[in-house]
């Protein structure tokens, strides 16, 4: 019973893998490079999945193309460049550093630095603020409280 369940779950999880066994390259090193490249490429049909994750037919054909090119001796970068030449930068899931994307890349660091700056300045100002002496009114109130009088 339990073994049957495990077998079933395994079958289901294998089915969820978009890369079909027949697509895989025999050489594990080349196959892992192909997976890496596929994970970086956007499926142009479904747009928010990589071709490694997508079950779309075009994504499947793209995976096969990626493997054929890697098998033929292309570097990972050459395969990515081929796709960018055809589909534009959009096809890359991770945007490249370019004049149009530089804001995207530096914004987090700049915002973090700004936040830290504000934090440090506020903390310093608080530390430097001298406590002022109590007014006579306040001193009287305090004294009453400390003495336990109403």
């Amino acid at each position: 019973m339990r073994m049957g369940l495990i077998a079933m779950m395994t079958a289901i999880s294998l089915g969820a893998l978009a890369v079909e066994p027949s697509e895989r390259l025999a050489d594990p090193a080349l196959e892992s490079r192909a997976r890496e490249v596929s994970k970086a490429l956007r499926c142009v049909v479904c747009q928010n999945e990589s071709i490694d994750d997508s079950n779309a037919e075009l994504a499947k054909d793209m995976r096969i193309l990626v493997r054929d090119r890697i098998n033929a001796g292309d570097s990972n970068q050459a395969v990515l460049d081929y796709m960018v030449e055809r589909y534009g930068d959009f096809v890359l899931l991770k945007p490249r550093v370019m004049p149009t994307t530089i804001a995207l890349w530096v914004a987090p660091a700049v915002l973090l630095a700004l936040g830290l700056l504000v934090l440090i300045r506020t903390m310093r100002r608080r530390a430097m603020a001298e406590p002022t002496a109590l007014s006579s009114d306040e001193a009287l109130k305090l004294k009453r409280l400390m003495d336990g009088a109403p």
């Binding site: 142009v44 049909v45 037919e57 075009l58 054909d61 793209m62 096969i64 193309l65 796709m83 055809r86 589909y87 534009g88």
Partner: peptide
């Protein structure tokens, strides 16, 4: 049959 030309033309659908 294998989308080679379609990909070369940057076709999405």
């Amino acid at each position: 049959p294998k989308s080679r030309a379609a990909i070369a033309f940057g076709v999405t659908g």
